[in-house]
């Protein structure tokens, strides 16, 4: 198939067959070893008259193997970075979530790979992936200002969305003392508050 060849060439110079979700997972297991903590292939069926099954790989890995996991994905096919985000539940760790899509350009064939790992708040440092993909700069700069995660090797460290005079040590997505709950300006009261105070009839 001409299409497949085109995408295959992008990845590594020679044509190769697309792997299925199991094979990709095998590849990840092979390169990460014990650092691959848990994994799952999620299947979703879409469509009304013609059912299609889409595959997503969700893997929990050890923080130390993050860079290796990303490189493994880049070796399979040049991916598309869907998003980077992180979850802070208020504890000692931030759960980082990286989502890539590979084999885009194949009808119904894009497989999304989501990597999750715990990053301790005592050491919020990650290697950058901008050397592999220039476009990831936007994502990394956003995570840097929203969660306070530093990226080693990220060149442009200016604020992306927040104003330049944003106070130090305030990160909007954090749910600890670095959060921004004290900065919120309530422009009008919610219906709940108005009812609570008995101002509803006013």
């Amino acid at each position: 198939m001409a299409e497949a060849g085109e995408v295959g060439k992008r990845a590594g110079g020679e044509e190769r067959m697309n792997m299925n979700a199991e094979q990709i997972l095998e590849k990840l297991k092979e390169s990460l070893g014990n650092a691959l903590l848990t994994y799952e292939i999620k299947e979703y069926t879409m469509g009304v008259r013609r059912k299609r099954t889409l595959y997503e790989i969700w893997a929990e890995i050890d923080k130390s193997a993050f860079r290796k996991a990303v490189e493994t994905i880049f070796n399979i096919d040049y991916p598309h970075l869907h998003f980077i985000t992180g979850e802070d539940t208020g504890g000692d760790v931030i759960k980082m979530i990286y989502s890539f899509g590979i084999y885009h350009g194949h009808p119904g064939g894009e497989i999304s790979i989501t990597l999750k790992f715990d990053l301790p708040k005592s050491e919020l440092v990650l290697p950058t992936i901008t050397d592999l993909m220039i476009g990831a700069e936007t994502n990394e700069r956003e995570i840097r200002e929203m969660l306070g995660v530093e990226f080693e090797g990220l060149k442009n460290k200016r604020h992306l969305f927040l104003p330049d005079d944003w106070p130090e040590g305030k990160y909007p997505w954090r749910r600890d003392e670095h959060g921004v709950d004290d900065m919120v300006k309530y422009m009008h009261k919610s219906v709940k508050e108005i009812r609570k105070k008995g101002e509803g009839n006013a």
Partner: peptide
């Protein structure tokens, strides 16, 4: 680049239609 979510990861009626980028 042949990139189109409607083609790569079809959902709803797009899966029936076979959208192409």
């Amino acid at each position: 680049l042949r990139m189109d979510i409607r083609q790569d990861m079809p959902y709803d009626a797009y899966a029936d239609i076979d959208v192409r980028a």
